[in-house]
Simulated scan of single mutants.
Amino acid sequence: MNSKKMVLIGLVLTAFFSSLAVFELIPGLLMAFLLLSVGIAVTYYFALSRMRLESLAGISILLKAAKEIGKESKAPEISRQLGLWAQRLVKSEAVLVWWQGEWAFGDEEFTAWPGLETAREWVKNNNEVLVLNQNGGEIFSHPWPSNINSLLGLPLMVAGEAAGILFLLNESKRGYFVPQDSEALEVICQQAAAALNKARDYQEVEYFYKEILFSMLNALDSRFPGFTGHSQRVARVAVLLGSKLGLDEEELRILEYAALLHDAGKVFFLQEGLPGEAGELEEMDKELSVLPMEEHPPLGAQILPDEGVFARICQGILYHHERYDGSGYPEGLSRTDIPLAARIIAVADLYDALTRLAPEEERLEPEFAIKEMKKTMGMLLDPLVVIVLEEVERELDEIT
């Protein structure tokens, strides 16, 4: 029932009971009671409606905040978004974010306050929300800044431990924080903790990329000079295709690493003295494949740990020789059972083989290479990815 109908019913009932009272058909005391009841009912209805609207508005803000925080993949921006949304949800003088042993966001004026270090240690050790006012009691004996009288600290939990903390500081005129203030922030703290943890995974990938990846690529390049730059070109084409297919920043980074490492398994063949002469390119088989060594995808996938973000990178490495019709290897997957990253890498890999890796007299111009690849759509390659490749043909020269 909407508010207009409720008001109309209230007016009708009031008029009805008033008429009865005028004609003295009901006692005056009973009339007063009935009128009071109608008034209370209408007031209660509007109060509930107001509370419901405020609740829906709060939920809407929380959902928007969680979405904005979750789509970020870099720790500084995640921390900034968390701080800004926290201040919007719970008004405060200042907000700070501590993550993985350092202050990721906040005013240096307050990060230097000794009291904040004490509060940080307490939240980290107890994994609980801390609400602290100027009468902080036994756990807090530090002088407060002149314009601050209340502190709220919420742990950013990862694997059961406070890997980070969100702090809000209130000035005197805003009043003290209360435990209920933390309830509005718990949702975005959970989202931020998950996003920051993903960002930490990416840092591990970056370390692996810098310390190990280049050494493997250099080993391949030195053994097969004709393949120099192949993995980098495949990665650039794959990222271009992925962006056109709507992959987000996180998915594009995973795709890039998988593409860079798609031939990493060849390192094991090199160690065993296999195969061929430097710069030699195996003759393309009937599947237009330039990599006949069927063992290199699983060997390459084994280089990375099968957990976290690495597991997703492994999928692109392991399955980039699967074919759309199920005729590929190592598992004979078909269609959308093949991870999208692997389907994209397969297209980028073959494109580079036809335009750059083939002997000079056999290399194809991009236009003709794409025409040849279109003949394999639905059999070897994902039709959608090939169509996107054709759409970005003019951009390929700039990145390859």
Score class of each variant (00 low, 15 high):
residue 214 F to Y: 15
residue 236 R to E: 00
residue 160 G to M: 08
residue 160 G to F: 11
residue 217 L to I: 13
residue 199 A to L: 07
residue 163 A to H: 14
residue 177 F to C: 03
residue 219 A to Y: 02
residue 236 R to I: 02
residue 198 K to N: 11
residue 214 F to T: 11
residue 244 K to F: 13
residue 156 L to V: 06
residue 235 A to S: 13
residue 162 A to D: 10
residue 211 E to T: 13
residue 230 H to K: 09
residue 182 S to W: 03
residue 176 Y to R: 08
residue 195 A to F: 08
residue 251 E to Q: 15
residue 244 K to D: 07
residue 187 V to K: 11
residue 245 L to N: 05
residue 221 D to C: 06
residue 191 Q to C: 11
residue 234 V to Q: 04
residue 171 E to V: 05
residue 182 S to G: 15
residue 170 N to R: 14
residue 234 V to Y: 00
residue 157 M to K: 09
residue 181 D to T: 09
residue 218 N to T: 15
residue 229 G to V: 09
residue 195 A to D: 01
residue 199 A to I: 07
residue 171 E to K: 09
residue 245 L to P: 05
residue 191 Q to W: 10
residue 246 G to F: 12
residue 159 A to L: 11
residue 216 M to F: 15
residue 236 R to G: 03
residue 186 E to N: 12
residue 154 L to N: 04
residue 158 V to F: 10
residue 242 G to M: 05
residue 189 C to R: 02
residue 229 G to W: 05
residue 205 V to W: 04
residue 193 A to T: 09
residue 240 L to I: 08
residue 208 F to T: 03
residue 243 S to L: 10
residue 220 L to Q: 07
residue 208 F to K: 00
residue 173 K to T: 08
residue 220 L to V: 08
residue 240 L to P: 03
residue 220 L to N: 00
residue 151 L to M: 11
residue 158 V to H: 05
residue 173 K to S: 09
residue 206 E to L: 10
residue 183 E to R: 14
residue 230 H to N: 05
residue 237 V to E: 03
residue 211 E to P: 00
residue 226 G to Y: 05
residue 246 G to H: 09
residue 196 L to T: 02
residue 161 E to A: 14
residue 236 R to H: 06
residue 165 I to C: 01
residue 196 L to G: 04
residue 171 E to P: 04
residue 191 Q to L: 09
residue 198 K to F: 13
residue 220 L to Y: 02
residue 170 N to W: 01
residue 248 D to A: 13
residue 179 P to C: 08
residue 224 F to G: 02
residue 225 P to H: 14
residue 218 N to A: 14
residue 181 D to H: 15
residue 245 L to M: 12
residue 173 K to V: 12
residue 158 V to E: 09
residue 209 Y to P: 04
residue 239 V to R: 06
residue 209 Y to T: 03
residue 199 A to G: 12
residue 235 A to T: 05
residue 223 R to P: 03
residue 244 K to L: 10
residue 220 L to S: 07
residue 249 E to Y: 04
residue 251 E to K: 13
residue 208 F to C: 06
residue 188 I to F: 09
residue 154 L to C: 06
residue 169 L to R: 01
residue 219 A to K: 14
residue 162 A to K: 01
residue 217 L to V: 03
residue 203 Q to W: 08
residue 200 R to F: 14
residue 184 A to C: 12
residue 238 A to K: 04
residue 238 A to F: 00
residue 253 R to A: 10
residue 197 N to M: 10
residue 184 A to W: 15
residue 232 Q to E: 14
residue 201 D to M: 11
residue 162 A to S: 14
residue 234 V to R: 01
residue 177 F to P: 00
residue 201 D to I: 07
residue 206 E to Q: 07
residue 192 A to Q: 03
residue 194 A to M: 13
residue 212 I to H: 07
residue 228 T to D: 10
residue 158 V to P: 00
residue 247 L to D: 04
residue 242 G to R: 00
residue 164 G to I: 03
residue 174 R to G: 10
residue 170 N to H: 12
residue 177 F to E: 05
residue 170 N to Q: 11
residue 240 L to F: 06
residue 186 E to F: 12
residue 228 T to A: 14
residue 232 Q to H: 11
residue 194 A to K: 11
